[in-house]
Simulated scan of single mutants.
Amino acid sequence: MSKQTNLLNFLKRKEPEPATTTTDEEVMPESSTPAIEQNTFETQRTETEENEDLLSSLERDPGLRIPMWDYPYEKRDQIRRAYLKLKPYQPILKSFSFSSPDSHRRRFRSSCNWKKVNDGNNCPFITHVGGSPCSAHNNSVRAKLDLLNDRGHIRHALIAQGEEQIKRNRLRLRTSIDVVRYNDEVSKAIENPDYNAKYVASSIQKEILQIISAKVRNHIREEIGESKFCIIVDEARDEARREQMAIVLRFVDKNGSIRERFLQLVRVNDTSPTTLKRELCLVLKEHNLLVENIHGQGYDGASNMRGEWNGLQALFLADCPYAYYVHCFAHRLQLALVLCI
């Protein structure tokens, strides 16, 4: 109770001290704003000043402005938004040069409104816009609106998703620590060990992790029960350049909720379809999961995974007619981001 009281007193906002008279030698601080808030304000002012300097330094004349590809890559969208906010720019000269032959001399006039040619019927502007919503002009207008909508940029979604993922990972870590701490058997073994037991040897730590992982896999098996399930598989190399296969199961539990559970990481000799199927079947057999209950497959777009005749999905589809293959949407998003960057 005393610790909680001390913590509440520590977090409680302190009342400002009454003003005291100062002598000539004492100098009161100019501002009572905390250093962190001052740094934040200075950062905001610096960013605002940089944006103002950027807007003031942009050349409005299209013939004199710096090409977009000469700017740093990370500044190009900011430059484009700045130009769009400055509105269109039309240089008006005292006289425009002729561009037609001597027999039919023509030149541009700034006072001419080309939107009203032929009373607006079939004028050049309507021809330029086009009647289709997917015309080049309408596509450019939509691209402009999307660019101005900075909040809809994909980086904000990725940042938000990254922050949420970090919170979930930390929650899982705290939960795992609490489980180990408050589990009767584990806590007794750790808190009351033998006189020479320290549990610092790598072999002992690996054994503890293997016991915990076995319990987790058994719990996943109980969640699946006799339900149908989908397999999500991906292969990769570790730091030692050894091939590994990650296995994730997607199923509907007894409460009707869709679950995705990481089951196991298996080391494989190669990534051929036959090797992957053999190792995958061994893992399913180890957990008493029938191959016939597979009702879906999710892999990347590699030929050994999605091959129509000899790929992993074709081998499973021959044994399970309902194990339809779906190209993993996470890999699709990755490919799209790679192409955009």
Rank of each mutant, 00 (worst) to 15 (best):
Y83C: 04
S57I: 01
P88W: 03
R172Q: 15
E235S: 01
C328P: 04
D77T: 07
S32R: 11
R81K: 09
Q90P: 03
C112I: 14
R170E: 15
D146S: 13
I190D: 07
K198M: 07
Y71S: 02
N138S: 14
V338R: 09
S257K: 14
E260D: 11
D184E: 13
C112V: 14
V180D: 10
I92M: 05
K215N: 11
Q165R: 15
L263C: 02
K94G: 13
C230R: 00
R13T: 14
R81D: 05
E239C: 10
P67H: 01
N269M: 13
L84E: 10
L290G: 07
R105E: 08
N293D: 03
I92C: 10
D270I: 04
N183L: 01
K116R: 14
E286C: 05
I36F: 12
S32L: 15
S31A: 06
D24V: 14
N138Q: 15
L249K: 00
L7P: 06
P18V: 05
I177C: 08
H128G: 11
T20Y: 07
I126L: 15
I177H: 09
R142E: 07
Y322L: 12
I258R: 07
Y299T: 02
Q38P: 06
T33H: 13
F316Q: 00
R259N: 04
S303D: 00
E50Y: 01
Q90I: 12
R168D: 14
N192R: 07
